[in-house]
């Protein structure tokens, strides 16, 4: 018997006769997606105020984990992005395929595309990367990238030391269940909550290890 069949046989023998278990899902689930699950409380509001509160919460949670946050009207994204890149003195900026052109002014930096694919060493030699995202989660201060348009391969947001991410208000959801419901497992996902960090020294959190040491988020309303 090969190892596969042996392990499966041992599993079957081990649980033979054991009762099955129903999964109680009484926690706050994804809003409007699943019946029988209590929807997440957005503070009682359902109108435009609810969105505002969600954005405030998202910004607060991002800042908690040392991300730099701007909340701006859609028309101002390009100027806020330009200022941010200027402050960082970015000279070589990675721009993934499909990034909305309206987000980038012509700046005092070179943009670098990923077609043909940049080598790891090339990427390591850039100063920063700008992306959009697939979903963002207010409650945990998380942005999720799914390698879609305006996001690129996973390495693009890993090797440059600076990551600027533009989140559109419509991409923002309340909690983790809402995000899981919107995301497709077939795509490679990167969930990002603040800059790279470690708690390995005396369990104190320190920002900045191998991933980008600075995360800046522009929330476009």
């Amino acid at each position: 018997m090969n190892s596969r069949d042996m392990i499966l046989a041992r599993v079957r023998g081990a649980v033979a006769g054991a009762p099955d278990v129903e999964v109680p899902r009484a926690y706050r689930g994804a809003a409007g997606v699943t019946a029988g699950v209590t929807p997440r409380d957005t503070g009682g509001d359902t109108g435009p105020n609810a969105d505002e509160r969600l954005i405030d919460l998202f910004a607060e949670r991002l800042r908690d984990y040392r991300a730099i946050v701007h909340v701006v009207a859609e028309a101002e994204v390009a100027s806020v992005v330009a200022e941010a890149l200027g402050r960082r003195e970015i000279r070589r900026l990675v721009v993934p395929e499909g990034l909305p052109a309206a987000w980038l002014d012509r700046g005092p930096y070179d943009t670098v595309g990923d077609d043909p694919e940049l080598s790891a060493a090339d990427l390591d030699g850039t100063d920063g990367v700008i992306t959009g995202c697939a979903v963002a989660i207010a409650e945990t201060g998380t942005i999720v990238l799914d390698a879609g348009p305006g996001q690129g391969r996973r390495a693009l947001t890993l090797l440059p030391d600076y990551h600027l991410c533009v989140v559109r208000a419509g991409q923002l959801v309340s909690g983790v269940p809402d995000a899981v419901a919107r995301l497709a497992p077939e795509r490679p996902l990167t969930w990002i909550s603040g800059p790279s960090a470690t708690s390995d020294i005396e369990l104190n959190r320190v920002e900045g290890v191998h991933g980008p040491r600075t995360l800046e988020v522009v929330i476009s309303t």
Partner: peptide, 14 residues
């Protein structure tokens, strides 16, 4: 585990 609302990075791949 780390007492964070979310850890800095989660990767999923298929």
């Amino acid at each position: 585990s780390t007492g964070e609302r979310m850890n800095p990075y989660t990767s999923t791949w298929t």
